[in-house]
C-alpha cells in the first residue's frame, strides 16, 4: 500500500479542489455561444452561406454545449460512485480494493463538498488502517480548516481527529478536543462514538476507575448505537475491570466483546487488549 505522507495528502487536496475558474469558463462559454447565435442570426445572411449551414450551425453549437455540460455531470457522478464504492470496501475491511477504487477519484476536482469530504474520510480510514495516525490527523485537520463537508460530516471528522491524536499519543490535544466534543449537541450515534473514544483514552491513560464509572450508561449507548462496534467498547471495559482486579466482570465483558468482534481484531485495534486476551477465554467465532 502506498505511503500516505504529508506530500501525498497535500497533492491530493490540491488535485481535488474545485476550480472556480472552470465554472467561470463554462459560463463564459455560454455567453460566447449566445453572442455567436445572435450575431449569426443577424449577420449570416450577408455572408452568403448555404441555407442549411445558416440554420443548422447555431443548433449544432447549442447541442455541443449541452453535450459538454452532460459529460461534466456524468464525470462527477462517476466520481461519486467511485467514492461510495471505496467507502463500501472500507466498511467491509477490503483495504486494498478501497485504495484501488479511491485512487482515481482523487486525481481531479470534486465539485461537491460532501463528496470531497467523504473521499478524504476514506483516505483517513486507510491511513489509520496502516497505523499512519499522523497522516490521518493531518487529513482530518485539513478538512476542518478548509471546512470541507457538512455539519454531520464535520462532527464525524472531529471525532476522527480526536481518535487519531489519541493513537498518535498527542494526549493533551486529544483530551481537549474530547472535552469540547462532549459539550456540543450531537446525534446519539455520534455521542456513542465519542464515548468509545473517551473510554479508550481513559483505559490508555490508566484512568480505570473513571472508565468504569458510568458503565451501565455507556454499555447501553454502545449497544443501541454502535451495533457490532460495541464489541470494542465491551473489550475496553473488560480491560479496565481487569486492571481493577474485578476478574469476573472482566471475563463476562470479554466474552461479550469476542461474541461480536474476533479477538484478533480487537487486539489489532487496541493494543491494550492483548493482556485481556491472554487472561480470559474468548467465545469461538462461528460460521
Amino acid at each position: 500500500m502506498q505511503e500516505i505522507d504529508a506530500q501525498f495528502i497535500e497533492r491530493h487536496f490540491a488535485a481535488t479542489a474545485p476550480r472556480p475558474s472552470r465554472m467561470t469558463g463554462f459560463y463564459a462559454l455560454i455567453g460566447v455561444v449566445a453572442a455567436f447565435v445572435l450575431v449569426w442570426a443577424f449577420r449570416a445572411q450577408s455572408w452568403h452561406l448555404v441555407r442549411p449551414l445558416v440554420l443548422g450551425l447555431p443548433w449544432l453549437v447549442l447541442l455541443l454545449l449541452l453535450a459538454v455540460s452532460w459529460w461534466t455531470t456524468l464525470q462527477q457522478r462517476q466520481r461519486r460512485r467511485m467514492i461510495t464504492k471505496a467507502e463500501e470496501h472500507v466498511q467491509l475491511e477490503a483495504w486494498e480494493q478501497a485504495e484501488r477504487t479511491l485512487e482515481p477519484a482523487l486525481q481531479s476536482p470534486i465539485r461537491s463538498s460532501n463528496d470531497r469530504c467523504q473521499a478524504f474520510m476514506v483516505l483517513a480510514a486507510l491511513a489509520e488502517h496502516n497505523r499512519q495516525y499522523e497522516s490521518a490527523a493531518r487529513i482530518y485537520q485539513t478538512l476542518l480548516l478548509e471546512r470541507i463537508g457538512e455539519g454531520y460530516q464535520l462532527q464525524r471528522v472531529q471525532l476522527g481527529l480526536s481518535s487519531a491524536k489519541l493513537r498518535n499519543e498527542e494526549l493533551a490535544d486529544a483530551v481537549n478536543l474530547l472535552d469540547r466534543l462532549e459539550k456540543i449537541s450531537m446525534p446519539p450515534a455520534l455521542q456513542a462514538v465519542c464515548q468509545l473514544i473517551r473510554l479508550s483514552q481513559q483505559v490508555f491513560m490508566g484512568h480505570y476507575e473513571d472508565a468504569v464509572e458510568n458503565m451501565a450508561d455507556r454499555q447501553s449507548l454502545f449497544r443501541r448505537f454502535l451495533s457490532t462496534k460495541a464489541g470494542y467498547g465491551y473489550g475496553l471495559l473488560a480491560a479496565a475491570h481487569h486492571r481493577l482486579g474485578r476478574l469476573d466482570e472482566a471475563a463476562r465483558l470479554w466474552l461479550d466483546a469476542t461474541t461480536l468482534v474476533h479477538p484478533e481484531r480487537l487486539v489489532e485495534e487496541y493494543d491494550c487488549l492483548a493482556v485481556v486476551s491472554q487472561n480470559y477465554p474468548a467465545l469461538e467465532q462461528r460460521s
Partner: peptide, 27 residues
Amino acid sequence: GFLGTLWNPSDAPGSILSANPLTNALW
C-alpha cells in the same frame, strides 16, 4: 419546423427568414 425550413429549396442562400410565409411559420 426545423426540417421543413431546411428543405425549402426556393430561398436564396444566406437568409434566415424566407419569402415563403409557411417556411417562416415553421421556423
